[in-house]
Design a protein around this nucleic acid. Structure first.
Lengths: 208, 208
DNA sequence: ACCTGAACACCGTTCAAGT
DNA sequence: ACCTGAACACCGTTCAAGT
């Protein structure tokens, strides 16, 4: 260890940073709040810094630029959405259709109640350097859907075939409803019916 | 007519405006270009004005603010997408499945080749004052899908029921694929397979 | 290591004034 | 009607300097 590094550690331990311990976490939390209230385009690093009583240049120590902060917020969003789905999963005992419906409804509810967050999550084109974190977040999100499809195959509710491809197809439909509901293309009052229709078609198909 | 108004008309006819006749159209066109190249968040009114050799305040005569310009670009996007769909529609003679596939492929192609435009179109929450224009654009977009479903019911390819609700369900799925493809969640190489899977499930359902 | 303060090159929006 | 020029209050980013 260099003496310089030791000096820094001493400073950090003595001071615990200038404001309240963890500026990075505080920035993410505050960013989440202003995102919800005003949307991503209205989120400014300088305002964030002001809200947290640090200088406007302080955020750059933790996020190399505005985009990096928004990417981190989006990643947290995926984690929260995965948590919401896992929590909403009633498990195989509920039966395939009820389980599918519970997962779908949780997805749409999340999209509607966190519209700015979902817009951020599903607008940023895949960032090639943060791709590993992203992939892990996606796996956690997809896990209950995979499980539902695999169990559905076991119980004879779902046709045979590659679980991943079938699960993706189900996700396409639900994501379509969730996205269109969150931006208001599907009016609030019609969301339940639209999701019900979508799931009916997903299970039974368009055929007579 | 007031003398003031007459004076203005004389000025306009004599001069035909300061640069090349139709700043509003020029702004929309240039906005479309920079949108495609750099995305909506990097689009600035001042840069647009610079590109068109007008003062930075000139755009405000045609669009009350940045949001209004972006909304107008999005509206044009819907018109272009409707045109693309109408053009891709092979008509009822092609058979239901081929027609559905053609329309779906055109949708996904548009989303992938115009990713910034589609992101703009499907991110702005429904603007309550420009809602009439929006509704008309949606009707034009949905027309071929409605027709395909209605014809499918006649030929026995689609079950009976409310055409609009069935068409919406089809659109949810295709939109889900288009959106996820445009942001890179579905890798370019997998798009064809993903869309094929989605349409198979849409037609036949998840059931065995 | 973590933050500050000043500096730089941008923004959107408004408004009196010109033609 | 349509545009200009100046002014105002913001931005993101960088960088030497402090602790």
């Amino acid at each position: 260890m260099t003496t310089r590094a030791a000096f820094c550690i001493l400073l950090t331990m003595a001071n615990r940073s200038y404001h309240h311990g963890d500026l990075r976490a505080a920035l993410l939390e505050q960013a989440g709040r202003t995102l919800r209230e005003k949307g991503a385009s209205a989120l400014s690093l300088r305002e964030l810094a002001r809200d947290l009583n640090v200088s406007h240049a302080a955020p750059s120590r933790h996020f190399k630029d505005r985009r990096a902060l928004l990417d981190a917020v989006a990643l947290l969003g995926f984690a929260r959405m995965a948590e919401a789905l896992a929590k909403a999963d009633p498990g195989p005992e509920a039966g395939f259709r009820a389980r599918l419906e519970a997962l779908a409804r949780a997805t749409v509810d999340f999209a509607v109640s966190e519209r700015e967050l979902i817009a951020l999550m599903f607008s940023s084109k895949a960032d090639t350097d943060a791709l590993d974190d992203m992939h892990e977040a996606w796996m956690r999100l997809a896990a209950p859907v995979y499980a539902a499809i695999a169990d559905g195959q076991r119980t004879g509710d779902v046709h045979a075939g590659d679980v991943e491809r079938i699960a993706y197809s189900a996700f396409f439909t639900v994501h379509g409803v969730a996205n269109l509901a969150s931006i208001g293309v599907i009016p609030e009052a019609d969301i339940d019916q639209a999701l019900g229709d979508a799931l009916d078609h997903l299970v039974r198909g368009l055929r007579p």
